[in-house]
Design a protein around this nucleic acid. Sequence first.
DNA 1: CCGAAAATGTAGCAGTCGCTACATGATCGG
DNA 2: CCGATCATGTAGCGACTGCTACATTTTCGG
Lengths: 190, 190
Amino acid sequence: MIGIMKSMDRKEELLEQVVEHVLEHGLIGLTLRPLAAAIGTSDRMLIYHFGGRDELVAAVVARANDHSVAAVKSMEPAEDVRTGVEALWHAYREEPMHSCLQIYLQAAATGLIGMEPYRSVVRAANELWYAALRDYITACGAPPERAGRIATLVDSSLIGFHLDLATDRPDELATGVADLAVAAGAIAAA
Amino acid sequence: MIGIMKSMDRKEELLEQVVEHVLEHGLIGLTLRPLAAAIGTSDRMLIYHFGGRDELVAAVVARANDHSVAAVKSMEPAEDVRTGVEALWHAYREEPMHSCLQIYLQAAATGLIGMEPYRSVVRAANELWYAALRDYITACGAPPERAGRIATLVDSSLIGFHLDLATDRPDELATGVADLAVAAGAIAAA
DNA sequence: CCGAAAATGTAGCAGTCGCTACATGATCGG
DNA sequence: CCGATCATGTAGCGACTGCTACATTTTCGG
């Protein structure tokens, strides 16, 4: 029993290191041996603790999402919904959310074609994420009966903006986000 | 010279088959031998005609994007911007755009972490795509001086919605798209 | 019909993949 | 201090990767 506790600690320790590595080097194309070497262990041990590559990937995606969710939950509510959406976009582009969202995007794009475990873990992650977003929007003063609707719009749209961050010019995207924020505010005030 | 023309035809023929295969089986994890076997050739010939895996992938992403762009350009303009956005969303979920956008999403997510040739080819694809979107929105009656701004909002947001299509319930997303369409219409009419 | 060039087949190389069998070291309850 | 369980190192398996050298067939201008 105590041995199990010990192993859990070690697994947790490894997971944190793996997440850190994936945040920097990406999820797509992740393989065990280079990963293990980078964090000072062996593929043998990663499989021993996690059971296999798939389980490790699932744990990484879930953990990265936890970090994102925690970051949103730690945000101070803005004074209104429009300002809140702008604040969200600002948070999206800063660490730790920026890298965590990139992991999410990579996992979501992979899960898009039905590949497991990406599909399942992304589903679960998205639910937690959506709930956190809705709570924040509610805290910004949105009517509770419309917060979910606003969260749906903001969630999908901001993810899209974040994806385009790599190809578009940031200042152009900023006008798009501003328009989105106004729209969200209008729904809240309707 | 005529020989070169012939080889170009063969390359074109192969590319079309490769795109068709990728549309069904995804871009992430694509490898030459299973791909070649599926379309009745050999990895040897794919490399011979395209030069290497990277060039083949770049050609596939560009071609899939061409199909998406052509689909948008073939759309009848809607009577106003709001209706146009709804029509775009409808087109997003039907073939050929649905599968082509999934390829784009997979390439974009891969290019997000700087991987070539994904990064470059996605950049180029996005420019063509954005231009087609802006033209369509203009054709729907948006003031030319604001069409670009609307296209920025709609482009990023709809891509986000499409990504969430795999995890969220479609009817919930539909309300989000409806809200987006109203917002786009409001900007056009402002 | 011939010779060059293009196209394709055959076979394989060096490297990586996830994973596992086996043995050893570490830890700890009894 | 002993035996059991956990943790880790070593070595390697079979499969797959992109790619290439070499030989062959096919095509087509002259």
